[in-house]
């Protein structure tokens, strides 16, 4: 058994990336970014509000957190729904009690199904980020172009019907195809959060901004995947805040999943984390759109 001789051809071995999606950039050699009030660290809470249909789709793949048993999986359907009925209000209360603004990455199906939740998010002054149709609305490179285009256009149309025009987009499981950045731009999205390769927003070649929502710092990764306690989660976030504030001009993204971090036995640790981060005095809490605007305003770097 030998390998095809072409296996040692490297047609994209060249300066920069082996793709043309965005240009190479070393974060440490960019002009420094300063946040409002000269705070060194922008903290970006991004709550996800997800609707998992009880009939999961495996095309193109089953989303993380989706149904796991044979139909009907009441266990996971209701445990996920807990997030939208109960958990998310604990998070909204925690932010509003402290005068903080967050992003809420919401499946448009959640906005349609739970108008009271949409109202609560808007009344809290939080920013809506489009998060596909529902948790069956996943995209990847195996999806036909028309199907992908339809998911993004459907998401846009349904938000428009609700009277909202979110500027930001988060894909299900951060999964994209090579076409996604262009399709998002076509549907009027100005930024996305899927590519986790930086601690600052940066521009793709087509002009759309990517604001990385670091999956390594998500409650799903730390608590569900690595099985850490809420206390360990808080310590890891504070260690990250210490480091990023020390570098200065960085973003600390906090992806918050209501059915994970906002359970009764975890939420108090998270509230105490917010209090400690506020007490530091060096954190600027803001939604993703505001962070991108601030970065564009104070940086001479082209975003």
């Amino acid at each position: 058994m030998t390998l095809d001789p072409g296996y040692l051809d490297y047609p994209r071995r060249r300066p920069g990336y082996d793709h043309d999606l965005y240009p190479w950039s070393n974060i440490h050699s960019r002009p420094p970014v300063r946040w409002p009030d000269d705070r060194p660290l922008a903290v970006w809470p991004c709550i996800v509000a997800e609707f998992f249909p009880i009939t999961p789709s495996d095309v193109p793949f089953r989303a993380p957190g989706h149904m796991q048993t044979a139909f009907p999986d009441y266990r996971h359907y209701t445990a996920r729904d807990y997030g939208n009925r109960v958990g998310i209000y604990r998070l909204l209360d925690a932010f509003e009690a402290r005068g903080l603004r967050a992003s809420v990455a919401m499946n448009v199906a959640v906005a349609e199904r739970c108008p009271a939740l949409l109202q609560a998010v808007l009344q809290g002054g939080h920013e809506i980020v489009a998060h596909s149709t529902d948790m069956n609305g996943a995209i990847d490179g195996s999806l036909p172009a028309e199907a992908e285009q339809a998911i993004i256009a459907d998401t846009r149309a349904r938000w428009t019907a609700l009277g909202h025009t979110p500027a930001g987009w988060l894909s299900v499981a951060r999964s994209q195809s090579f076409r996604t950045a262009d399709l998002l731009l076509e549907q009027g999205f100005r930024w996305m959060a899927d590519w986790c390769n930086d601690d600052l927003p940066y521009a793709f070649a087509n002009g759309i901004i990517n604001l990385p929502l670091n999956h390594e710092l998500s409650d799903r990764q730390i608590i569900n995947t690595t099985q850490a306690s809420a206390d360990s989660y808080c310590q890891q976030i504070e260690d990250a805040a210490d480091w990023l504030a020390g570098e200065g001009g960085r973003v600390l993204p906090l992806q918050l999943t209501p059915y994970i971090i906002a359970l009764p036995y975890r939420i108090a640790a998270f509230e105490a984390l917010l209090d400690r981060m506020l007490a530091r005095g060096d954190c600027w809490f803001a939604g993703g759109g505001a962070i991108i605007e601030a970065a564009q305003a104070v940086s001479s770097a082209r975003l």
């Binding site: 990847d140 490179g141 499981a173 999964s175």
Partner: peptide
């Protein structure tokens, strides 16, 4: 593990 591009 995912079809290209495996974004994450």
């Amino acid at each position: 593990p995912r079809p290209h591009p495996d974004v994450v």
